[in-house]
Design a protein around this nucleic acid. Structure first.
Length: 226
DNA sequence: GCGACAG
DNA sequence: ATCTTGTCGC
């Protein structure tokens, strides 16, 4: 898979923030998705006390063999020295470079990507999922385990229940009860996807666990378990 | 000025 | 994110 150099990655915090404001204007929130036959899940983990960044990408076949049971088409793990510390709001500058290196080694091409983290549910509307989507020019959505910004009502306790996540006047995502009686996940469009469609895919990939399969499997691989 | 703060 | 065992609950 190829990528076109969009910008530099080694930026000081203030410059990174200004760049996010510009890139947010390029994010597409209308559906522009090809027929799906492959869905990729991405997550980043760390080793050596944080000195090594470990990016994991898992490609699954769509549709699943049965609900929540997907065929794993390909897996890639890429390790590299960690480039910067975690700074709330600037997560993509720490994780996306490693994710791109992992994608570059993929021999199969996904039509949709699910990322562990926020999409547009970000102070400047450019969470990791959106930033990665822009670089790869592919549809992405974010699945986060906790909130970065925005306000919301508590969704019902049944699997599938959800409430909108709002930031000022904008609806930036949804708080989805992905599993009955379990803490909800935060779903938001990354790029080339609308919120309803992002919610549909997140729901369609759910099995019996809290996280959708693409993200759950990438999570395990990134934490060197799977 | 005082909190909040994806992974 | 990561360091970490057993344990409570469906």
């Amino acid at each position: 898979m190829s990528t076109s150099p969009l910008h530099d990655w080694n930026l000081a915090p203030q410059a990174a923030i200004e760049l996010q404001k510009r890139l947010a204007g390029r994010v597409e929130l209308e559906d522009r998705l090809d027929p799906v036959s492959r869905i990729a899940g991405v997550d980043i983990g760390f080793e050596e006390g944080g000195e090594i960044t470990r990016a994991a990408v898992v490609v699954l076949a769509w549709p699943p063999i049965a609900t929540g049971d997907f065929e794993v088409v390909e897996q890639v793990v890429h390790r590299e020295p960690t480039r910067m510390p975690y700074i709330p709001g600037l997560l993509s500058f720490r994780e996306v470079p490693a994710a791109l290196a992992a994608f570059a080694r993929l021999t199969t091409q996904p039509e949709l990507i699910m990322v562990d983290g926020q999409g547009i549910a970000h102070p400047r509307r450019l969470g990791v999922a959106s930033h990665l989507g822009l670089w790869l020019d592919l549809p992405t959505l974010g699945i986060a385990k906790s909130r970065l910004c925005g306000r919301h009502a508590e969704p019902g306790n049944e699997k599938g229940d959800w409430t909108p996540l709002k930031h000022g006047e904008d609806t930036i995502g949804a708080v989805l009860r992905s599993r009955t009686n379990v803490k909800p996940v935060f779903v938001s469009p990354g790029h080339r996807l609308s919120l309803p469609t992002a919610l549909d895919w997140a729901t369609a990939c759910l099995g019996r666990t809290k996280l959708p399969e693409p993200t759950r499997l990438a999570d395990r691989l990134a934490s060197r378990r799977g």
